[in-house]
C-alpha cells in the first residue's frame, strides 16, 4: 500500500543542515576535532617533553603536576598521550586514503569494463579477501622489518578489496541506468561517462563506507604497535604505550596503560558514530 508522503529535497549541504538536534553526533564531531587539534598542536599543548624520563618519579598516580601520572620511566603520561595522537591518527588516515583511492579505481575498472577485466580483477580481489589486514601487516613486518610504513601499505592493500567490491557493484548497477546510455548516445566517450558522470553518483556511498574503515585501521595498527611490530620506542603511540604499561598495571598503577587505551576507544567510538550517521543520511538521500 503506497502512501504519498513527500520527502523534502535536500542538496549536499542540505544534508548537513538537516542534522539538527542530534547532540550525540555533534559531541562526537567535537571530540574528533579536539583530537586532531591535539595531534597537530601537541608540541605547544603538552606540559612535558614526552620522552623526558625522570626515574625518581616513576609510576606515580594522577596528581596536580602530572594529570595522568607517569609511566615506569617517569615520563608524563598526558604528554605522551597527546603526542601519541600523531602517530595513532596518521597511520589510519593513510590506510583509508590509499585503500579508497585505489579501491575505487579497481572497482570502477572492473564494474565498467566487465568481461575479462572484471573476471581477472574479481579473482584478484577474491585472493586479497583471503588475507586479513592484521595478518598481512604481520607478514610484511616479518619481511621488511618493524615500523609504520610497511604495515600501512599492507593494510591499505588488505582493505582495498572491500572498497573495490562496493564500487564495482554500484557501478554495475549504475551503468544500466538510462542517464548513462543518454550520455553515450550523445557521443561522450566511455572514460568521460564513467569517471565524470557515473562515478560522482556512487562515490558518496563508497566514501561513507570506507571512512568507517578508519576505526578498524586504527584498531589494527594500534594492535600492531602493541605487539611491538609497529611504531618503535621511544616514539609515543597509543598501542605501544598500552604494551609498555603492562608492568605498571601489574604494579597497581595502571594509568599509563589505561589512558592511551581510553583514548583509542573514545576516538573509535566517536568516529563510528559520526561515520554511521553520515552514511545513514547519504543512504536515505539516495533512496
Amino acid at each position: 500500500m503506497s502512501v504519498a508522503i513527500e520527502t523534502p529535497r535536500v542538496g549536499r549541504l542540505g544534508a548537513v543542515r538537516d542534522f539538527g538536534g542530534s547532540w550525540l553526533f555533534w559531541t562526537c564531531v567535537t571530540i574528533l576535532i579536539g583530537f586532531v587539534l591535539i595531534a597537530l598542536f601537541a608540541p605547544v599543548l603538552a606540559p612535558y617533553d614526552p620522552n623526558a624520563t625522570d626515574l625518581s618519579n616513576a609510576l606515580s598516580g594522577p596528581s596536580l603536576q602530572h594529570l595522568l601520572g607517569t609511566d615506569e620511566s617517569g615520563r608524563d603520561t598526558l604528554s605522551r598521550v597527546m603526542f601519541g595522537a600523531r602517530t595513532s591518527l596518521v597511520g589510519p588516515l593513510f590506510v583509508v586514503v590509499l585503500s579508497t583511492v585505489f579501491g575505487i579505481v579497481v572497482g570502477l575498472l572492473a564494474g565498467w569494463r566487465g568481461g575479462w577485466v572484471d573476471l581477472v580483477l574479481s579473482r584478484v580481489l577474491d585472493i586479497l579477501f583471503a588475507f586479513p589486514g592484521l595478518l598481512l601487516a604481520i607478514l610484511v613486518v616479518a619481511l621488511f622489518g618493524k615500523g609504520m610504513t610497511a604495515p600501512v601499505v599492507a593494510m591499505s592493500v588488505a582493505y582495498l578489496p572491500f572498497v573495490a567490491r562496493l564500487t564495482r557493484s554500484l557501478v554495475v548497477q549504475g551503468k544500466t541506468q538510462p542517464y548513462v546510455a543518454a550520455y553515450r548516445v550523445q557521443g561522450f566517450g566511455p572514460t568521460y561517462t564513467a569517471t565524470r558522470r557515473l562515478l560522482p553518483n556512487v562515490s558518496s556511498t563508497v566514501l561513507a563506507q570506507s571512512t568507517l574503515n578508519f576505526g578498524y585501521a586504527l584498531l589494527d595498527l594500534a594492535a600492531l604497535s602493541f605487539l611491538g611490530l609497529g611504531v618503535q620506542p621511544p616514539t609515543p603511540d597509543w598501542g605501544a604505550m598500552v604494551e609498555q604499561g603492562r608492568g605498571a598495571v601489574l604494579s597497581g598503577q595502571p594509568m599509563s596503560a589505561i589512558a592511551p587505551a581510553v583514548a583509542i576507544v573514545v576516538v573509535v567510538v566517536a568516529f563510528n558514530v559520526v561515520g554511521e550517521e553520515i552514511g545513514d543520511r547519504i543512504a536515505r538521500r539516495e533512496r
Binding site: G215, L219, A222, A223, F226, G239, V242, E243, G245, R246, V249, L250, G252, P254, A257, I258, A261, I264, V265, V266, V268, V269, N272, V273
Partner: peptide, 28 residues
Amino acid sequence: TFFAAIPSFAAAIVLISFFSVRLGLFPT
C-alpha cells in the same frame, strides 16, 4: 557501540588491571 571500539589488547589490560590485580579473582 562501545564494545566495537575496544581493541582486544585494551580490554586485556583493563580486565587484568581490575579483575586480576585489584580483585585477585583471575590469574594474570
